[in-house]
Computed example of a mutant assay.
Amino acid sequence: MTDGTTGGRPGRGDTGPDRTRLIIGGGAAAILLAIIGAAGGWVLAGDQVRPGPVSSAATGTPTPSPTGRISPPQERPTPNTATTPSSSPSPSRPTGLTVPDLVGADFEEAREELRDLGLGWQLVFGSGDSSSVRSTDPAPGTPVRRGVTVKINVAGAAPPNEVPDLTGETCNEARDELVDDGFSPRYPNGRSGTVTSQQPPGGTVGRWNDVVQIWCGTPPSADASTPAP
C-alpha cells in the first residue's frame, strides 16, 4: 500500500508555501512595473505640452534682471532718412535786365537811361574835357537786378553846377531836386519837416557831385551853419 508519494518528492497536487510566495512576488512585481510605466508616461506627456519661455521682445514687457531690476524694453533703431541740405547756393532767378552799353554817351544821358531802367548810378569824373562815358562797372551786358548801382566813369572833369535854393521845401522835395541837379544831399539833423537852411546857399556855383547840406525842421546853430575853413 502506497501513501501517494514517489521517492519522497511531493506530488502534483502539492500546494506548498514556496509556490504561494512565488505567485505573490510575481504579482507584486507586475503591479510595480505597471505603476512605474504609468508614471513615466505621464512625465513624458507633461514635458511635451509644457509651454516654453515667452520672449520679452514679443510681449513688450520688461524682463527682470538677475539683480531684481527691471530693464526697459529695447527700442529698435530707426533708420536715418533725413537728407543733408545741399551747400551749393540756389541759382537766382533771371530778371532779363542787363547793363546797357553807355560807352561814348553823354554822362547826363547815361544817367537818365539808368534811372529809367530802375538802376542806380555813381558818377566818377576824370581829368579831361570830355563829358562822354569812358566805361561802366559792371560792364555792358552784365545781368543785374533792379536797384543795383552802376558806376559811370566819365572821361572829363566834373562840369560847373549851380546849387538850387531849397529853403521852404520839404526835406524829400529838396532831396529829389539835389539828386536831379547832380548834387549829393546830406541831412545833419534828420529828414523830417521843411528846409530851414542849407549849405552852400542857393545860387552858389559848385560842381557835379558836390555835397549840399540841408537842415530840415530845426534851423542849425550859428557854428553849424558856418562852413569850415
Results as ranks from 00 to 15, higher is better:
Pro219Cys: 13
Phe183Arg: 00
Asp18Tyr: 08
Thr81Asp: 06
Pro64Lys: 05
Arg93Gly: 08
Gly7Tyr: 10
Gly52Arg: 06
Arg146Val: 08
Ile70Pro: 01
Met1Ile: 12
Ala224Cys: 09
Gly156Lys: 04
Gly37Gln: 08
Gly104Ser: 01
Asp181Asn: 02
Glu109Gly: 14
Pro85Ile: 10
Thr5Trp: 12
Gly190Asp: 02
Gln48Arg: 15
Gln122Lys: 15
Asn189Asp: 12
Ala224Tyr: 05
Arg12Trp: 13
Ser127Asn: 03
Leu32Gly: 09
Pro100Asn: 07
Ala139Gly: 07
Leu123Val: 05
Thr149Trp: 02
Ala30Phe: 13
Gln48Gly: 03
Ser127Arg: 14
Asp3Arg: 12
Val154Asn: 04
Thr194Ala: 09
Leu22Pro: 01
Ser92Pro: 07
Asp176Met: 06
Ile152Arg: 00
Ser192Met: 11
Gly27Met: 11
Asp165Lys: 03
Arg111Pro: 00
Pro201Tyr: 11
Thr6His: 06
Pro200Ala: 04
Asp129Glu: 14
Thr204Leu: 01
Ser90Leu: 13
Phe183Glu: 03
Asp137Met: 04
Ala28Leu: 15
Pro53His: 14
Val144Cys: 10
Val124Lys: 10
Pro200Ser: 01
Thr142Arg: 08
Ile24Trp: 08
Thr136Met: 05
Asn80Gly: 06
Pro159Ile: 09
Pro79Ala: 00
Ala157Glu: 13
Trp121Ala: 06
Thr2Phe: 10
Glu109Ile: 13
Leu166Lys: 07
Gly26Leu: 10
Ala29Ile: 15
Asp137Gly: 08
Asp180Thr: 15
Leu123Gln: 01
Asp47Ala: 14
Leu97Lys: 01
Asn161Leu: 12
Pro17Gly: 11
Val54Thr: 15
Gly46Trp: 09
Pro53Arg: 10
Pro64Tyr: 05
Glu112Gly: 04
Thr5Lys: 12
Gln198Tyr: 08
Gly4Asp: 13
Gly190Pro: 09
Gly7Arg: 03
Val205Thr: 15
Ser184Met: 01
Gly193Pro: 12
Thr81Gln: 05
Phe183Met: 02
Gly156His: 11
Arg50Ala: 15
Gly4Met: 11
Pro100Ser: 10
Pro77Tyr: 07
Ser56His: 12
Gly202Thr: 05
Thr83Gly: 02
Ile36Tyr: 08
Val154Pro: 00
Tyr187Pro: 03
Pro62His: 09
Leu117Lys: 14
Pro73Tyr: 02
Leu119Asp: 06
Gly104Met: 09
Pro100Leu: 05
Thr78Phe: 08
Pro201Ala: 13
Trp42Val: 12
Gly147Leu: 00
Thr98Lys: 09
Asp137Asn: 14
Pro10Glu: 06
